[in-house]
Design a protein around this nucleic acid. Structure first.
Lengths: 293, 293
DNA sequence: CCCTGCCATTGCGTAAAACGCGATATTTGC
DNA sequence: GCAAATATCGCGTTTTACGCAATGGCAGGG
């Protein structure tokens, strides 16, 4: 950039002495600076002898270029610096539909007010996939149940405790357990179950059945808890879902919670992110906005 | 420019080792190059740790800029270099109308074919002013009579010898000298003369009259020889002009050459230019195209 | 769970380049 | 012809850039 400034100053004054003074360098430095420019360009910019300095035709062309180039550079500089202060960029967040409806929505609304320059990309899907997507770098962050043991590369922050519940259709059915408060093998072995394909809710359900000594009759395996509510609402069987999914479901009236004993365990739902990605100011800003538990 | 190339290479490969190899520098040099860019811009361009490299949002902005800037620079370089080969620019030439009609026209036509990139600005006017305009730097070159002594700063190249002639109107007039071949004081002291305001032709005419022992009766002093032909053609008096002006005049039929004895001296007409301006390839090209005498 | 390979960065000694001072050559104005 | 002006060059010094080797930290595998 500096040779360009030197050139422009000289092109204005057409006098090495005065131009060098204006640039705060010695005349010899300015002379060399111009000569170097000319060598790099392969063209004479000034027609000069010991007494006269004049722009060549090519010098005029270069003058227009130099002015524009310097302005563009300065403009970019300012633009990037203001961006750096404003903290702009893009963060992708993966979560379930339910999470996007409930507490995450409130969180992100607030975040957007504090950092209007940061764009949020919200991807919804099965929470069981959440952690894998973050580990693979496909998403910056995810809402996910806390796993039994957290991978080392991952940072996790609890947001809420989510009770798991059994849900059944409102209408009667032959396979409906009559006394869910005290379950028996006979009552549950023929019940058509609608469970997650994978994830913690599935593991907990499996554990529950194993404790009862029953191999459940799996009617359907579903990716995503929301669809479980739909299928149960249609009367296909009994499902296991986090209570929060039920609370946010438009089909809430079509299903009821079964007061099964023993109750399924709660699990932690929280935000997770790659530890190393916390060095990014963007990610950090969102991470710090979230209050644990 | 080089830091920009480094940046673009790294932005493509996102790997310091491979990028530095592609740039033929050591990884440490590339690292410093990028860091220096970031310091100058006041913005982080890459989000990186010991294991991962990724463009920031600002890095993407800068990438677009860098690509454009490099392309503009290269384009300019090529453009200036081809200009340098083609020898483009502008030359201003000052001369009389007559010169522009006659040999100068032929000369410049040829020159234009050899150097189509050079634009010629032709200024016409009184030859008496020619030398002053060149010395003042108002014109690059001029066609002018060779003065008695050439200023040191000036280069001069003879083009042709120009005889000076007396011209008279075709129609009769009371004051017309009856025997121009042997002039007498009586014949000439009452002749209305139409002469140049200044310049060599005027000096020669004055000298001629002085030798005859006559103070001429000046009817009109004119700037530019062409107008002298016009006035003589209208019958106002007798003029002194270079023969070449007469040869190119549309009023040639209205006047006639007086066979006066002794004849007026010839003078050299040639091209003049500031010596120091001959260092310019443009000026030099035109200068070299002209064959002396 | 440690261990090895990978990789961006940093310290340091050296090489290159930039810088300023004084000298030089050349030109202009008096 | 002489003196002031001025772009450029040579040279010694300072600043900067470069590569090598070492460091530290992060992933993947036995």
């Amino acid at each position: 950039m500096r040779p360009l400034k030197h050139f422009l100053t000289l092109a204005d004054s057409l006098h090495f002495g005065r131009a060098s003074e204006a640039c705060h360098v010695s005349p010899s430095t300015l002379s060399r600076s111009i000569r170097q420019l000319e060598e790099n360009l392969g063209a004479k910019l000034f027609e000069r002898d010991n007494r006269h300095v004049a722009l060549t035709r090519q010098g005029e062309t270069f003058q227009a270029y130099a002015r524009e180039a310097l302005e563009q550079w300065e403009q970019l500089r300012l633009s990037l610096q203001s961006e750096a202060l404003h903290l702009t960029g893009e963060i992708s967040v993966y979560c379930s539909v339910t999470a996007s409806y409930s507490f995450l929505y409130a969180l992100l609304s607030e975040f957007r007010i504090h950092h209007p320059g940061i764009e949020l990309k919200l991807h919804t899907g099965d929470p069981a996939e959440a952690m894998a997507r973050v580990l693979a770098g496909e998403e910056d962050m995810a809402i996910t149940p806390r796993p039994r043991r957290t991978p080392e590369a991952l940072a996790f922050k609890s947001l809420t405790r989510a009770p798991l519940v059994f849900i059944a259709p409102q209408q009667a059915a032959a396979w409906m357990p009559s006394t869910p408060e005290s379950p028996s093998t006979e009552q549950w072995c023929e019940v058509p179950m609608i469970l997650s394909e994978a994830g913690l809710s599935r593991e907990f359900a499996d554990t529950w059945f194993k404790a009862l000594g029953v191999t459940p009759r799996i009617y359907a395996q579903v990716a995503g808890h929301e669809a479980i509510v739909s299928m149960v609402g249609l009367g296909f069987g009994i499902g296991v879902v986090p209570k929060i999914v039920l609370d946010n479901s438009p089909l809430q009236e079509r299903v009821r919670v079964l007061p099964v004993k023993p109750e399924l365990p709660h699990y932690d739902v929280g935000l997770c992110v790659l530890e190393r990605r916390l060095k990014s100011p963007l990610i950090r800003a969102l991470w710090d906005e979230v209050i644990e538990r």
